[in-house]
Design a protein around this nucleic acid. Sequence first.
DNA 1: CTGTTAGCGCATTCAG
DNA 2: CTGAATGCGCTAACAG
Lengths: 329, 329
Amino acid sequence: MAQKVTIKEVAEIAGVAQSTVSRYLNNGYISAEKQARVRAAIEKTGFRSNFFAKRLKTKDSKLIGIVLPRIDSVTVGKLLAGVSRILEPNGYQGLLLISHLDSQKELNNIRNLLQQGVDGIIVDSVAISSEHIKLSKAANIPILFTGQKDEAVPCVKIDDYKAGRMMGAYLRMQGHKKAVFAGVTTSDIAVGVDRRQGFIDAFTENRAATVDFVETGFDFFSAYNLAPQILEKKASVIVGATDNISLGILRYLHERRIKVPDTVSVAGFGGYDVGSVVYPSLTTIAFDYELMGMKTANYLLDLLKGKEITENLNMPLYFVARESVKKLN
Amino acid sequence: MAQKVTIKEVAEIAGVAQSTVSRYLNNGYISAEKQARVRAAIEKTGFRSNFFAKRLKTKDSKLIGIVLPRIDSVTVGKLLAGVSRILEPNGYQGLLLISHLDSQKELNNIRNLLQQGVDGIIVDSVAISSEHIKLSKAANIPILFTGQKDEAVPCVKIDDYKAGRMMGAYLRMQGHKKAVFAGVTTSDIAVGVDRRQGFIDAFTENRAATVDFVETGFDFFSAYNLAPQILEKKASVIVGATDNISLGILRYLHERRIKVPDTVSVAGFGGYDVGSVVYPSLTTIAFDYELMGMKTANYLLDLLKGKEITENLNMPLYFVARESVKKLN
DNA sequence: CTGTTAGCGCATTCAG
DNA sequence: CTGAATGCGCTAACAG
């Protein structure tokens, strides 16, 4: 019972037909006189048009579905901030669904959104499966993916392989020859495969150098708990697949009084603000997630308008050298 | 054009009436035989009921409006995670609106949500004004506030005054007599007034002790930039109104090689994960924002059901003693 | 148990 | 420029 006054009552009070009120609401032609009467009636009653009735007619909902793997994460927060910064001034609202890093849930969330008649969907995906592609093809609204990439569907993503390479090349230049990559599941192609492979390729290219691997989760504590295993590898530098991972490791090292970067170097990916506060501050590859959110939203708007894609989908990468990596000779 | 097949077509294919299909969808009585025919027809057509048409009839939208001051913040993320953890299994979805720390926008967001026929609203408010209260009273759906408190409307909030007292009492016990509170605008009653006053009261009660005040923003850099002014006060301990503020100060001190806690102690409020990673690790009062989100959502569900409020609205406070505070004698 | 009949509140023909 | 009429897709009486 969210509504009380309808267009009908407004029409009665104003002494006009319903359709006239409707025209008033939708920029149709009305004489100045009736316009005034309708306006008065609307103000008097506090009328607000019924969202659902309106959408039942007009077909477009002005709603964008947003599917997120998790919500309590800095990166997702920034992404969302960027998306909403674009969506909002364009009159769209975001309908939020969380997949809890579960691909099946992600699929279900997309299906739900489809059913609800949203105008478009943004999926910060954990993995683009054939099922995802099928859904995307079958849908009659645009579905945009981010976080992962697949040629078969529209995507906005940072170049993880390149980011990995940047870090690999830097650590190599700093004289490191033995690294351990603390990363995530390979089912995450972007972070678990591409980013890591980029690192390995640049770090080992044409020389004797090794990269060990320890699989961690995405969160701080998972990395913290696996720190002993990571240390066992006795590398000169530990590379976390995300800053969170590196932070967890840093904490462990700090507690054990293991000096960073004197005893071991640490680096990460992401460029989280906190990386600058920790001691030592964290060397990392920074991504602009908010920009990515904005690009994603703009891309979707273009798709919605059936417009030529004007958005430049290139995502910048920033190398941030700080204190946590030592130069070896 | 998100929908194609309607209940009508399904009915035709199954050879039954529309209402029978509707009943099938809504747990009405149907003979096993027709049930099978309808099911077959639905599968064949890939029918999904039209969200808007359904809501136009049934009045409840299964949508909860969520108004947030900002989205790219750890605390808000955790809050949201808690909310969605409760809402989701109960079949509700979250419609997200961001106020950008602007009270007017917050009000507008609430009005929008009201118009859209959401079933309830959660507002993580920056300030509860008389306008907020008016809206809440006038609305025919529950509007729940969090972050701030006002007797006139339902709220879920941590006890900021008590949190302030906890910190005040602790620092007093540690022998500190001169503190500076680096806080936020007093228009934020919860953080800018209550939390601070609690601290002052407990810290100065029945003894000669002083608390200076420097107003900062909420973010890391604002505090960092104001650090010189804060240091001028020459207190033995600096208390940031939030961990973010304390972190900014810590960063400044670290850069100037000012030893914490030997030269000056630092403490904060919030219990952000990163507080444990910084060096020295930050003494703080931790709040469980995710729990708060869950309690808020549960409370709202109770309200929605017209049920007796079963939710215990008491929010726990955890004192976390770490390395950044020195014991004076 | 099932089909028929009314609307929900609005936008949109179609005549005037 | 404006009113009357129609139906979006669905649920909920209402009779049977």
